[in-house]
Design a protein around this nucleic acid. Sequence first.
DNA 1: CTGAAAGCGCTAACAG
DNA 2: CTGTTAGCGCTTTCAG
Lengths: 349, 349
Amino acid sequence: MTSLSESDAGSSARPTMRHVAKLAGVAVKTVSRVVNGEPNVAPETARRVLDAARALDYQPDPHAGNLRRSDRRTRTLGLLVSSVDNPFAGAVHRAVEDVAVEHGVAVFASSLDDDPEREREAVAAFLRRRVDGLILTTASTNQAYLEPELRRGTPVVFVDREPRGVETDAVVSDNFGGAARAAEHLLARGHRRFAYLGDLHSLQTARHRRRGFLEALDHAGIPVADVPVIEDLHDPERAREALLRLLDGPNPPTAVFSSQNLVTVGALRALRERGRHRDTALVGFDDVELADLLEPGLTVVAQHPEDLGRIAAERVFAKLNGDGSPSQRIVVSTTLIARGSGEIPPSGM
Amino acid sequence: MTSLSESDAGSSARPTMRHVAKLAGVAVKTVSRVVNGEPNVAPETARRVLDAARALDYQPDPHAGNLRRSDRRTRTLGLLVSSVDNPFAGAVHRAVEDVAVEHGVAVFASSLDDDPEREREAVAAFLRRRVDGLILTTASTNQAYLEPELRRGTPVVFVDREPRGVETDAVVSDNFGGAARAAEHLLARGHRRFAYLGDLHSLQTARHRRRGFLEALDHAGIPVADVPVIEDLHDPERAREALLRLLDGPNPPTAVFSSQNLVTVGALRALRERGRHRDTALVGFDDVELADLLEPGLTVVAQHPEDLGRIAAERVFAKLNGDGSPSQRIVVSTTLIARGSGEIPPSGM
DNA sequence: CTGAAAGCGCTAACAG
DNA sequence: CTGTTAGCGCTTTCAG
């Protein structure tokens, strides 16, 4: 039995309800009532309790409370993104945070690095900590491992990439449509010789963008088999090298589509290096900071990560509040922003 | 008394140790031993327990365990940054995360928006959740409110900005030195007419940069009183307007220093708009994506957010592991990256 | 309006 | 090697 003795000098221990109760001269339950704003406490008693709590700098322990409490909420949420050090993910994160704080919920954020193993570990870590809900960007090919958790009623919403093997909500960009739009934009300027620079083929979004781009070309009668499709470019350096090879080849493209942020940066570098940035059209997927200050300005298909994050978070809270509607797949459209590089006409025709 | 009855159909409840113990035909303590890898369990018994745990998809509840456990760690850390949607903060966050995962610790991240009230709320939210340590970027003028928590032994490390009113570690950039370096760089090209574009004067870092820049000019014999110092520029638009006014004025600067990311973007826009980007020197504080692809390339004083984050996290874990060394103020140096804009000589001389 | 007793899921301390 | 008992800090239940 703890003695609840006088204050130990030095490292003051964390006060509990019992300390407050003793100081205020009431029972623990009364402190609990005051702390939780429950009714049926005499104003004078409440004041004494509050004074004692303040004097001790008492902070209720939500973990202890939750153990016995009926709803058992931790007021915590797990967010898994590609990497917290990534502008797209940062915008998603911020939107999620803004919705979460409104609900008094704190956000655990983890980076995925597009590694299936990290995905499993991060999700396990979230679940161990009993988060109330999960917002996930995935790297694995199948998320059936979430089944038991879903059956327990934990809300899970996928963001940016769609789930496989589980029935639950997803909020994604219109990758197919956005890439098709980029193709049409270039076709409208009269281009016939294209190149496609793609991200990891293992990523669903990358495959959707590729399909969208190529199908649009196909519809326009471009012989798609002849279009160089370079994939698995995951960083600027790989992308730069790939485009340099194409530019130095026998039949360089007059129009380039880069399917992602980092790939776009690499493509830009390659074009500069060969002095082709003013006569080769370029459209990138994802908007980039300073895109308007380049010469020419960079034309992009912009995603709306804030919307993805906000909507995903709202879905989680809706489910937490008992919304039992069937799983939805919410598609957020993209926006083509013309700034110059995508409006360059074909050269050498 | 809970009946521990047969599986309820539908929303399967979360299994506890007692469920596992019953299914494996052992006592709860034995399950605890197996789950925690404690010694003295017969291999055969351990196997039965593990099978039962797997069959039920059992996950131990760390909150319940912590209640009784001696060390009482939540394996959780609170990180407060300017905004999670901000490249600098993202890099800090990622570095902190990398150190944290190595220790099996999850990170709560919150955005500050340079608002003292949000700072207090975020810190309170972290503390309520009993984080093991705190890494904080601050907006308030005084952090004495952390005293009680520090006395309880919670490790707190400040990052990017130094604390006031409390004795604890801080990891900051060499703001003074970096800004001075920028001034010297411009002076070396022969500039005599400068302009200083600064962030919110309320921010300590902004004040240090200003001092560093102006003192270096002063040392070089530049009449500092004549240098236009425009402060409280917190976004690109304000910065752009401020520089436009200077450029349109009677005595436009030949060299500009912008004290932060967003301010730099605004300055770049203003220079373009007046067609002065090739004859006005510009050095920005903070590196920016695509800076090398601008024309001219953007010269910056780069900070090293990954180092700030990593070192701050390491300090937290050191303290958690009993390191009782006195508070340190760790200064991470900056790096001037010359890319063109800062090497433009004075025009019209 | 107030409080005593029981118990949340787990671990500490001690038996066997 | 295994189990029993108590109790972490709080809420629930129920009795004053």
